[in-house]
Design a protein around this nucleic acid. Structure first.
Length: 488
RNA sequence: GGCCUCAUCGUCUAACGGUUAGGACAUCAGGUUCUCAUCCUGGAAAUCGGGGUUCGAUUCCCCGUGGGGUCACCA
């Protein structure tokens, strides 16, 4: 069993959320059934080529953990490929399409068309005005062989069209069941463009067959062109693959997910510090459910539970709130060392702090992160004490004198404490708690001013965490600043 | 507009003829707490409408309605 996932070099050069989900389902299905997973670059539209898009795609697939058996790869810094069914880039397969379209021509399943683009647009507009379906009028279908030959030799621009037979076309969609379409509805689709490149329809059928693809899993937007593909399979005498059309991913207003309404590029999310695991988990569950109450799944668990029969039929709105939640779950559950590796590059201006301190900061702040990029703004107060008003140091149930008294005492207490205590959050807490207990104080009277002193902020992590992440020296200097502020 | 297709809380979904229609996100209310966040507990919130079939319909059928897709020398 072979499964292929196809990638046009997208206009942005980025991998779309919808494309990722399609790729993921292809991948899950292939792995579940021990099939071969192939990546193919569909770049037959020369006008939309984007420099570096393929490289970017390869990198993104690697980051999200989609390993493929065949397809383009980067080897020693240059674009290459692996697998015995190549090339995997359609623009490199032109002679193959030429050959196959020739047999179509010979069998009478396709014909040359010399109609100008002007004529076609005019045709369309008159059809539209008359409220007729817009279709090619088969103007060139009856052209004699000699005339075709003559015009071709004269260098006239031409395309090759599929000759749609009469009758109706039925196919089975693995997700939706049987779908029947009257052939009269189907246009004589262009198969080979004037520039010598095939259209998607020709290329996909030829390549899928040559690459032994048995299951075609793609987005729902393709469903209406399946009959054309079925006709081609029949015309070529290729065995029919299984089709499965996935529901669309939608904007909050239920339209097809688009750039206009927010980020849709996987790279955008990766750059913001969404974890690949969370992205994969979330995107997979958009339209598929393993049929339980669980929400968090590893890639392997997704592979094990994946079934096309559990894929939903209706489109799913991309709910960023839920993605945010899920990303937070992954951040909090991740091993600290691993998390630090992922978060390393998100420290912004605090990048200069020693690594040991950055690790502590991450530990202290991770409960407050939606995405790793949030670190950048949270980390500033560890580097430099924010400006703040002295009044902030006073707890709502206390007064200035009380705060001043505690801060002074704490300053003395911490000065005398051994450096080693600062290596352990629990020990630090014990020291402070002991002070509170022995003095018979209220937690708030002591902890609020301490925390505010250390963070310079109304809201922050707790005082024990801050002492641990800031270290003895910085803590004491911030204490001194606070005392100074309150005294004047 | 033609054709295709879809329809359970605001959102993602579970329930493949019999449930007080379940879970999660978001939301609201409590709790833990020095603040924020995390975490815990609880609440509100849905079967698009109308006909059938059936002892019984979220579930099967039909008709509406609504949404989406597609109608290119783009994929």
């Amino acid at each position: 069993m072979n499964i292929v996932t196809r990638f046009p070099p997208s206009p942005t050069g980025f991998l779309h959320v919808g494309s990722l989900r399609t790729a993921l389902y292809n991948y899950l299905y292939a792995r579940k059934h021990q099939g071969t997973f192939i990546v193919r670059v569909e770049d037959t539209d020369r006008e939309r080529l984007v420099e570096g898009a393929v490289e970017s795609l390869i990198h993104t697939l690697e980051k999200v953990g989609l390993e493929y058996d065949q397809g383009p790869i980067i080897k020693d810094g240059i674009l290459s490929e692996k697998g015995e069914n190549g090339p995997y880039t359609q623009s490199l397969r032109l002679p193959i399409y030429q050959e196959y379209v020739k047999t179509l021509l010979e069998k009478g399943n396709a014909y040359y068309c010399f109609c100008s683009k002007d004529r076609l647009t005019q045709l369309r507009s008159t059809q539209q005005l008359a409220k007729l379906p817009t279709k090619y009028d088969r103007h060139c279908v009856g052209l004699k062989n000699e005339e075709v030959k003559k015009r071709l030799e004269a260098g006239e621009s031409s395309v090759i069209r599929l000759r749609v037979p009469e009758g109706e076309t039925t196919f089975i969609d693995e997700i939706r069941g049987s779908i029947k379409i009257n052939n009269a509805e189907i246009d004589d689709q262009v198969l080979m463009k004037a520039d010598g490149y095939p259209t998607y329809h020709l290329a996909v059928v030829v390549d899928d067959h040559l690459m032994g693809v048995t299951h075609i899993i793609r987005g729902e937007e393709w469903i209406s062109s399946v009959p054309k593909h079925v006709m081609l399979y029949n015309a070529f005498g290729f065995p029919m693959p299984a089709f499965a059309h996935l529901p669309l991913i939608l904007n909050p207003d239920k339209s097809k997910l688009s750039k206009r309404q927010g980020d849709v590029g996987i790279e955008d999310f990766l750059e913001k510090g969404y974890l690949p695991e969370a992205l994969v988990n979330f995107v997979t569950l958009l339209g598929f459910n393993p049929s339980g109450d669980r929400e968090i799944y590893s890639m392997q668990e997704l592979i094990d539970t994946f079934e096309l029969s559990n894929v939903n039929k209706s489109g799913a709105v991309f709910d960023k709130d839920k993605l945010n939640w899920m990303n937070g779950q992954y951040i909090r559950a991740m091993d600290p060392a691993e998390l630090y590796e992922r978060a390393k590059s998100f420290f912004g201006e605090a990048q200069t702090l020693p690594e040991s301190q950055k690790k502590r900061i991450l530990e202290v702040e991770k409960d407050r992160l939606v995405m790793l990029l949030d670190l950048e703004e949270r980390v500033g107060m560890y580097l430099t004490l924010p400006l703040y008003d002295a009044q902030m140091l006073v707890w709502k149930k206390a007064d200035t004198q009380d705060s001043l008294m505690h801060l002074g005492a704490l300053s003395q207490l911490l000065t005398g404490v051994d450096e080693s205590i600062f290596q352990d959050r629990v020990l630090i807490e014990e020291v402070i708690k002991k002070y509170i207990e022995e003095g018979g104080f209220q937690n708030g009277n002591v902890l609020w001013p301490l925390r505010a002193t250390l963070s310079g902020q109304q809201q922050s992590a707790g005082p024990f965490d801050l002492l641990w992440a800031l270290g003895k020296e910085v803590a004491l200097s911030r204490l001194a600043i606070a005392i100074e502020k309150l005294s004047t």
